[in-house]
């Protein structure tokens, strides 16, 4: 289990407790975090589950695989610290993670 803070597109801070055994995307959708569209439901096909990761966390997340890297390269609003939340499983190690949801996923 991990407590993750999402900054929603309108600036609202949402602290959410996410159980393991799911991706950050699934947890965020279940908690109705705004702005995580996740159109493909986690198939790494849509890049609409993107977030910006707080600087101090970038190196602490599991590395991107080739598919995530390639999807991100062509994702609108992408930045250096962008990740696809459907590709990151929730683990205890993510406790305290802070991410920001982009203004739009399209």
């Amino acid at each position: 289990m991990a407590t993750i803070t999402f900054e929603e597109p309108d600036g609202t801070l949402r602290k959410v407790d996410l159980a393991g055994g799911q991706s950050i995307m699934e947890g965020a959708v279940r908690a109705s975090v705004a702005g995580i569209d996740a159109d493909c439901g986690g198939a790494c096909s849509c890049a609409t589950c993107m977030v910006y990761v707080a600087d101090e966390w970038c190196d602490r997340l599991p590395p991107k695989d080739a598919a995530e890297t390639q999807m991100l390269e062509f994702c609108p609003h992408v930045q250096e610290n962008s990740r696809l939340t459907c590709q990151i499983p929730v683990t205890d190690a993510l406790d305290g993670l802070r991410v920001k949801v982009p203004p739009s996923q399209h």
Partner: peptide, 10 residues
Amino acid sequence: RLPEFMMSKQ
């Protein structure tokens, strides 16, 4: 071919 797909959408 993820890059081709994403690029083509644009």
